[in-house]
């Protein structure tokens, strides 16, 4: 556990030293803020004190934001060869993956924590439903965990950050949109399967105010699958 935290700390320091964290957080806040408060069917359009608009927008900004954040996690280590130094230290492959995961997750937590003024503002304007806000954030965090899992996996298979980024977006797109489209186009058990795989169904069910373990399991299993595949992909160095 201590080893994981040492790795996480180093990773976080790297993010903040190299401005990546600042740029990412500012972009995230900028986009989310702009569409939440200023543009289109913004938060005032609803006519009630609810952060639903923001959650809907963050649902999309995080979708792009996370692959950009995770893309260098392992690909850069592989490209520079530093992974060899890391893994010959008393560290297991799993510890390295968890360290990377935790660092990325904490950046998302920080980014979301910085949107907390939205909550305060809305709470001052009208009667805000605290439970809905809490579950909305929980939904975003669970979704982020799933996408970080995917992002770390794609960055473990390529030495090229751009490839890792695009591949993560490609996989993410299935969960984000394509399974939903397929679900509405097919019937029977196939339709049911696609409907289950569709991430937006699970996200909406949480942000609507129902925290079902089924949804939590859905997000966590995507995350674990991603991390598990990353470990396998690291272990592949033994084969070729």
């Amino acid at each position: 556990m201590r080893t994981i935290w040492i790795l996480t700390k180093k990773e976080l320091r790297g993010y903040f030293d190299s401005l990546i964290a600042y740029v990412m957080i500012i972009l995230f806040l900028g986009f989310s803020g702009f569409f939440t408060w200023l543009y289109g069917s913004d938060i005032f359009f609803l006519g009630q004190a609810s952060l639903r608009t923001f959650f809907g927008i963050a649902y999309w900004t995080l979708f792009f934001f996370i692959p950009a954040l995770t893309m260098r996690s392992l690909s850069e280590e592989k490209r520079s060869g530093a992974i060899e130094l890391l893994l010959t230290k008393p560290i297991s492959d799993w510890q390295l993956i968890w360290g990377k995961f935790l660092a990325n997750f904490l950046i998302i937590v920080i980014a979301l924590a910085l949107t907390f003024p939205y909550v305060i503002t809305l709470a001052n304007i009208g009667n805000l439903d605290g439970g809905a806000v809490f579950l909305g954030y929980a939904g975003l965090l669970l979704m982020s965990a799933a996408y970080i899992g995917i992002g770390i996996f794609t960055s473990s298979i390529s030495q090229n950050q751009i490839v890792a980024f695009l591949f993560a977006l490609f996989i993410g797109l299935f969960f984000h949109v394509i399974f939903g489209v397929l679900a509405s186009a097919s019937t029977g058990w196939l339709g049911g399967l696609f409907n289950y795989l569709d991430l937006s169904v699970h996200f909406e069910s949480i942000s609507r105010g129902v925290l079902d373990t089924k949804d939590v399991i859905y997000f966590l299993s995507i995350m674990f699958t991603g991390l598990y595949l990353s470990v396998i992909s690291l272990a592949k160095r033994n084969l070729n």
Partner: peptide, 8 residues
Amino acid sequence: NNPLYEDM
């Protein structure tokens, strides 16, 4: 190749 973290 002595891989190190250049920006540290």
